[in-house]
Structure formats: C-alpha cells, structure tokens
Amino acid sequence: MTGDDRLTVAAVEQTTVDVRSYVLTSHRPLRPYEPGSHLVVGLDGVRTCYSLTDDGTAPDAYRISVRRTGRGGLSDALHDTVRVGGQLSVSGPRSAFPPVPHARHHLFVAAGIGITPILSHLGAARRWGRSCSVVYGYRSGAAAHLELVRRLAGADLVEAPGRTALASAVAEAVERQPVGTHLYACGPRAVLDLVTDRCAAAGWPPERVHVEHFTAPDLDAGAPFEVLVRSSGRRLPVPAGVSLLEVLERDGVAVDHLCRTGVCGRCRIGVLAGTPEHRDLVLPAALRDAADRMYPCVSRAGTAELELDL
C-alpha cells in the first residue's frame, strides 16, 4: 500500500482495561514491513501513528494496539466507534524505528503501551535468531501483551512493575550489555530520558541508543514571529499559540504533514535565513543546532524572522 487504503477490522480484542488490539485485513495482499514500523490511521480527518505489533514477515493482517487516553483524540475515538466489520483508512506501513543490522545483541526497553513496537522487534529477533533481551515496565494489572512477551522472551525478560522498578532494571541492564549491543526504547518521555541518561552515564555512545516517542510533550504557546515565504515574497505573522504550519496552510501554502505533534518528520521545510527554535522530537541531538530545516507543526523561531524555502 502506498497511499491511503481501506482495511477491514477483522477482530477487536480488549487486551487490558484500557488497551484494545485491532486486527486489520484486506482482500489484497498486505505488504511486509520492518520490525518497529507503524501504520498511520485516519478517522474523520485526524491521523495518528500506531506501531504494528507483529514481526512484519508475510503479514496475514496488520495488528495495532491502542490505549484509551481519556483525553479525547483519535485513540479514544477508535475505542468508541470502531467495531468488527468496520473499515479504517490507513497508510503505511512506515519504518522509522528499524533494528540495526550489525548489532551483536539487542536490548529492548518498553514502558506501558510502548511495548507495541518492542513486541514487533522481539518477534523478529526470535524469528531470525538474533540475540536479544527485554526490560518491560508496566503498571500492575495493566501490562499489554504480557503473556506473549513472556512466551517470546522467556528467560531474557526482566519485568518491572512500576516506575521505580523500571529505573533500577534499566540502570542495571545498561551496565552489563555485551560489546556491540544496540538499545531500543519506547515509552513516555520521562522513561526515554531516564534511558538516555543511564546510557550516557554508563559510557554508551549515543549511536547505540534508539528511542521512539509515543507521546509528544505539551508545548507552550511560544512568542510571535514573522516568516518570509521565498517563492511568493509574502510576509506572514505567526501569533503566539498558533503553529507555523497552520499559518502556512491558511495562506494557501501546502506543506505535507501527518502527526502535527513534531513526531513523524513529515512536515520538514527548508530555512534560508534566521534561526529556528526546534521543538520537535525528530531531529537527533547532534542536529539540534541545525538552522537549515525545521518542522513547522511545532517548531518556532529563535529570531524575529525566518525566511522559508517554500
């Protein structure tokens, strides 16, 4: 599948109190995908990325797991409206969190619903005989896919019920990984920060640490600034609390986008002059100072004006 496609909801399973798993099928063959890939699901004009939980080899269905947040949004809408036999508009799969091919060992760290891409990685590691171990942090009684993770990981699983247990399990794990290990972590920002801090303290080069955010941080409204659109020569004011992406759209400047939360990297645009203030989760740490590009769905300006390559 390349563009949007409609898939049939073949099954819905209540995985935990607030997580539901959806099995999506098609009459057409489904494209295989790399472990750690996600599907972009659209409903009533809103689109969100969900990790595929299988290993991606010869898929008979696409499986995603969705946690109800209680804050509205697409995840809650899926819980409320999608039933077996219904259809969902999806695009992908897209790979944004792939395994490193030459890794000698894979250490997977998951917190909460962050288990979804990790489950995909774990399945692939088992299928292809790659060495791996798993640290899974969860709230007691609310661990999605726990039985499957236990079955796949066996003795290579460390379970961490609660944040404190997870912090010590991570601290311990990063101290004793064999040379050549790559670490993959998915969870809320606080857990990912903990993982990267612990790795840095244990002397891991950042190249070995791969994280996937599943929630974007809440951002403040930011200060107003102005942009100059190169092609039209038009100057547009960006008020506080309004994203640059919205301003561009309202002015009829088409910018491809997806998540609108600085996670997917789709809305990248070029910057010709001025300094962007990066607020996305896409740019790697080494590129946080980059002045030649930005993600306008969340990022703003560090200077009074930006000139955009649009």
């Binding site: 990063v174 101290e175 990984q177 064999p178 040379v179 290990t181 244990a202 002397g203 891991w204 070995r208």
Partner: peptide, 10 residues
C-alpha cells in the same frame, strides 16, 4: 578480550 567487556568500553 571483547567478550569480557561491556558497552561503555573504548
């Protein structure tokens, strides 16, 4: 030698 070391070794 490497088999007796961990990530963090340079």
């Amino acid at each position: 030698l490497a088999s007796r070391r961990h990530v963090g070794w340079r």
